[in-house]
């Protein structure tokens, strides 16, 4: 959970780091930069399925996210504000969502 996030290739040039939504802490806020289902993860789901489900729920590039709450056991699942709705998801599924944290409010 605390391992350094690997940067997805498409984001390599950007200054502010992108992290996986699964690594976010309560209070973290930003926007989604990429939703992509990693290949090679044993999900027993057809390829693209998780990606499409996330997209259908509004986890789409450009949407704003803020981590609101964590579940009582192991900080999982997480409740996020996604644009103007609230969505709960497991960190395992949030793994596929890359976010860029907004700069801290000064």
């Amino acid at each position: 959970m605390s391992s350094t996030p690997t940067t997805p290739p498409t984001m390599a040039q950007d200054a502010s780091p992108a992290i996986r939504l699964s690594q976010a802490r309560p209070g973290d806020a930003g926007w989604i930069v990429e939703v992509r289902q990693q290949s090679g993860r044993d999900r027993s789901l057809p390829p693209e399925e998780l990606e499409r489900r996330l997209l259908e729920f509004g986890f789409v590039e450009g949407a704003t996210v803020e981590l609101l709450h964590e579940g009582p056991v192991g900080g999982d699942p997480i409740a996020v504000r996604l644009d103007d709705m609230r969505v709960a998801l497991r960190r395992d599924d949030a793994h596929e969502v890359w976010i860029r944290l907004a700069a801290e409010a000064k």
Partner: peptide, 11 residues
């Protein structure tokens, strides 16, 4: 194995 995604709106 076989873990399903868990996505749910909090109305």
């Amino acid at each position: 194995g076989a873990v399903e995604p868990f996505l749910m709106e909090l109305p």
